[in-house]
Design a protein around this nucleic acid. Structure first.
Lengths: 177, 177
DNA sequence: AGGTCCTTGTTGAATCTTCAACCAATGGGC
DNA sequence: GCCCATTGGTTGAAGATTCAACAAGGACCT
């Protein structure tokens, strides 16, 4: 296989462009896809770093604290937490354990379902979350939202809503992952 | 601190909505931001899983192979590779080592700059890449591109191009990370 | 030549995530 | 009540990524 002019990311071994439901990506799609990939990498790395450097929290930890803080009695079942973040149950177990060790979250046993465990955000947790929130939001604004047109940003929202629907629809009522 | 109606992701401890350069996110921004977060997680997990299950390649490994295959003599300097993916040099070292162990990539010493190392994709590597490419592209289409309007998808491209510019501009000519 | 600083890339340990195996509790059928 | 399949959650090891420290080469100055 000569593998001649290997051009675009995903267009491996094929000539680019031409419209229709052709299997490969055209030049514009290619550019957009790659922009999304590297942009996302850079953005997430930066938001994570900011939280770590200034508040000693990782982005996933922060997101768990946020979910808990929003929840009715500042508590959520582990599975609920996992689903809302699209993280594996195992991952949430580990992350919550770390947060517990830092005293930002506590575990509480469920009364109705004795298998269940609820994670509760502590007062210290709420404090730390409030401190961290302003830097985080400032970052999201400065590095994303305030940088682009509101219409474009809403387009991003629409796109990934669609993606999410497609992906949760496809997993037939079982484990997210 | 009463921490009353903690509403949206990043709006921790504040009432939502109202326009202007108010520090928190309004309801729409909030929704879009969260949609992006979970959508990206689900999408990346799925693309990665598909590659692993069907071709025994991780997404980062695949991306390295793509970059190499596109490069003039099927080779790239480690740093170049790292920069083009926005990965740390260390990460690329490890990933390339794994690929080398699988025989998909080989290391080659630089003649001009004897510190340098070039990664070269092997023939086996090219083969595997070509097999993997079709499933990968099919996934990207099916789970993203063919799902949304071309205009919305291009908006995603624009947005993350802007984010990338902002982030590479801010790191003052030094190490990406 | 020698000295100093910067760049390239690697290394091994720490951290985080995934994976597979597991236990305990639940729910439904009988 | 008893079985058995399913769910909720944990565990520990394997895998991947980050981090700090490092060696070796180049660039540049004197």
């Amino acid at each position: 296989m000569p593998v001649t002019p290997l051009t675009a990311t995903t267009n491996v071994g094929r000539a680019p462009s031409r419209a229709g439901d052709w299997p490969w990506l055209d030049a514009d799609q290619q550019r957009a896809w790659r922009a999304y990939l590297v942009g996302t990498t850079l953005l997430m790395d930066r938001l994570d770093r900011d939280l770590r450097d200034r508040h000693d929290l990782s982005l996933p930890e922060y997101e768990i604290l946020v979910r808990l803080s929003e929840s009715p009695r500042h508590r959520m079942r582990m599975a609920e937490l996992a689903d809302s973040l699209s993280h594996s149950r195992s991952r949430v177990t580990h992350t919550v354990s770390r947060l517990e060790k830092s005293g930002l979250v506590a575990r509480d046993c469920c009364v109705e379902d004795r298998r269940g465990v609820e994670a509760v955000i502590t007062d210290t947790g709420l404090e730390r979350l409030h401190e961290a929130a302003s830097t985080h939001v400032a970052g999201v604004r400065e590095l994303l939202i305030d940088l682009v047109g509101a219409d474009d940003f809403q387009a991003v929202g629409r796109v990934f809503d669609t993606v999410t629907d497609r992906l949760v629809a496809s997993h037939p009522a079982m484990d997210i992952r």
